[in-house]
Design a protein around this nucleic acid. Structure first.
Length: 487
RNA sequence: GGCGGCAUAGCCAAGUGGUAAGGCAGGGGUCUGCAAAACCCCGACCCCCGGUUCAAAUCCGGGUGCCGCCUCCA
């Protein structure tokens, strides 16, 4: 049994060895999108982070039960629907579909369950009834509120001072709370809002109760991991803990994980600020794997700044990976090299990768180990340090296998190298207004000149192509070109 | 104001007690008809001031700067 993974637990504020409740199994719940619009790249970063975390837990042999919800009943959805004149449930369903498309494009693995609030009203109603029964919630004119004063550990997760929180809170008009910090479990319906029958009259769930009810439905009363963006820590997750533990008397979640923010031009990006880049728009400009690579370039808890330069760097890195894979696959020729000794210690890169990921999922470190494998493969292909061709082949084959294993955890390098490179070139050519037919024509002329040993003409044509933003590489298989505008 | 986080080469970014991973950009090489790609080499005393220690980027105290949460938000 390898040493346990270390996870930074928001609950305790430190890294802890990960011990799931049931050995070998992980129950993880990630707060999913509120579907009132398209997801933005900040959402995408969080979901990608937990995507890689789940993949790694599986890589380490855990049986993972992965749930990520859709919040499809919510104030913002109702507002968006009112603005557009659409039915709120329908609008939400539309954005659920859009999310599924975006998630596929980003190569996110499917959670085992993706529950929607609208499908779980009975669970939620039962949950609220239980809280009322236990005397930690109260009804007030068709609303139901959680009584924070009945849960002494309130604010422990987010490390807040209860008195100061109380001092700062204000009761919104129309709310019937006993205490400002109390939060709504159930909201009485206003005309035109989606509503369901309940013992307290027609209404709809408050925001926080859904996650407690749905996570318990699918994962039981105690979660191993609960994840989400930093901003959900308070009040959302705090409230989840309060209502869940008040209902069951058991710990709600053992490890809380919070993902850092994606900044846009030095400022936080959020739908309310309006400085939002939609995921689907970003994917028009950048390769999905390059976007993932960008997300993985820093630790999941650190802030990450979105910029064209960073994206371009990530795409360059992916290009390097794929160009190397193309060479390696060519060299290996799909042949089974068979067992035998290998050169050096290729397995050390895998050990490096696992050490990085075991340490609170150190994405940047993991990416570094992947780079090491590529440098090693390139050396073996281009400058073999030993003469024994079979030895080199076996070493390459092992590295290639390791790359596959690591890349499948990171969700990278899942394309055919040639196809990926061609797609990138086409996108770049389009972006720079490069006429591909013209390039091919000049390339043909240059090849003819080279065949005739007319190097002066060949060089002139190379310069001409360069002026177009095209660089040409002569390889044994003929010339290859790519878009590389002067930087 | 309260709570939390961060400050590492031109830029991005790992490393959390023993003299600094990786990527981009830059310089020098190898290779090449010329190139490109690839590979190799070169580059930081880790925000400032104190302290602990044989030893600190790494721990403690203070300062400065930036960011997030405290209201919907991944």
């Amino acid at each position: 049994m390898p040493a346990p993974i270390q996870i930074y637990n928001t609950l305790t504020g430190q890294k802890e060895p990960f011990q799931p409740l049931v050995p070998g199994e992980v129950r993880i719940y990630v707060c999913g999108p509120t579907v009132y619009s398209y997801v933005h790249i900040g959402n995408a970063r969080t979901f990608t982070s937990f995507d890689v975390i789940v993949r790694y837990l599986r890589y380490r042999g855990y049986r993972v039960h992965y749930v990520r919800n859709f919040t499809d009943v919510d104030d913002k959805i109702i507002k968006a629907a009112q603005d557009s004149g659409e039915d709120p449930i329908q609008l939400a369903a539309r954005f659920v579909d859009a999310f599924a498309e975006d998630a596929r494009a980003l190569r996110l693995i499917e959670p085992d369950v993706s529950p929607r609030v609208s499908d779980h009203i009975p669970d939620i109603v039962a949950f609220i009834a239980k809280l009322l029964e236990r005397g930690v919630a109260y009804e007030s004119q068709g609303d139901v509120y959680f009584a924070v004063s009945k849960y002494p550990a309130y604010a422990r997760l987010s490390r807040r001072n209860l008195d100061e929180l109380r001092a700062g809170e204000r009761v919104q008009p129309g709310e019937q709370k006993r205490e400002p910090l109390d939060f709504a479990l159930w909201k009485a319906a206003k005309p035109g809002e989606p509503a369901w029958d309940s013992p307290w009259g027609r209404g709809r769930p408050g925001w926080h109760i859904e996650c407690s009810a749905m996570s318990m439905r699918y994962l039981g009363e105690t979660l191993d991991i609960h994840g989400g963006g930093m901003d959900l820590l308070f009040p959302h997750h705090e409230n989840e803990v309060a209502q869940s533990e008040a209902a069951t008397g058991k710990p709600f979640c053992r490890y809380w994980m919070h993902c850092g923010f994606l900044d846009l031009e030095g400022a936080k990006m959020s739908k309310s600020l309006g400085n939002v880049v939609r995921l689907r728009d970003a994917l028009q400009r950048v390769d999905p794997e390059a976007l993932r690579c960008f997300f993985l370039s820093t630790h999941y808890r650190s802030p990450l700044a979105f910029s064209d330069k960073s994206l371009a760097d990530a795409e360059l890195r992916m290009e390097y990976f794929y160009e190397t894979l193309r060479r390696v696959d060519e060299r290996l020729g799909g042949q089974d090299v068979g067992p035998g000794p290998v050169h050096g210690q290729p397995e050390r890169f895998l050990a490096e990768f696992e050490a990085a990921m075991d340490d609170d999922f150190n994405f940047a470190g993991a990416l570094g180990s992947l780079s090491g494998m590529f440098a090693a493969m390139n050396e073996l292909v281009e400058r073999p340090p030993v003469r024994d061709r079979a030895l080199v082949g076996r070493t390459l084959a092992q590295l290639r296998r390791q790359v596959r294993a690591v890349a499948s955890v990171l969700g990278l390098l899942e394309d055919d190298p040639a196809a990926w490179l061609l797609r990138r070139r086409e996108r770049a050519a389009r972006a720079h207004g490069i006429d591909v037919a013209r390039v091919e024509q000049l390339l043909g002329q240059r090849q003819a000149a080279r065949a005739a040993k007319d190097f002066a003409t060949a060089d002139r044509l190379r310069e001409e192509l360069r002026a177009l933003g095209v660089s040409v590489m002569d390889t044994p298989q003929g010339p290859v070109w790519k878009v590389s505008p002067p930087r």
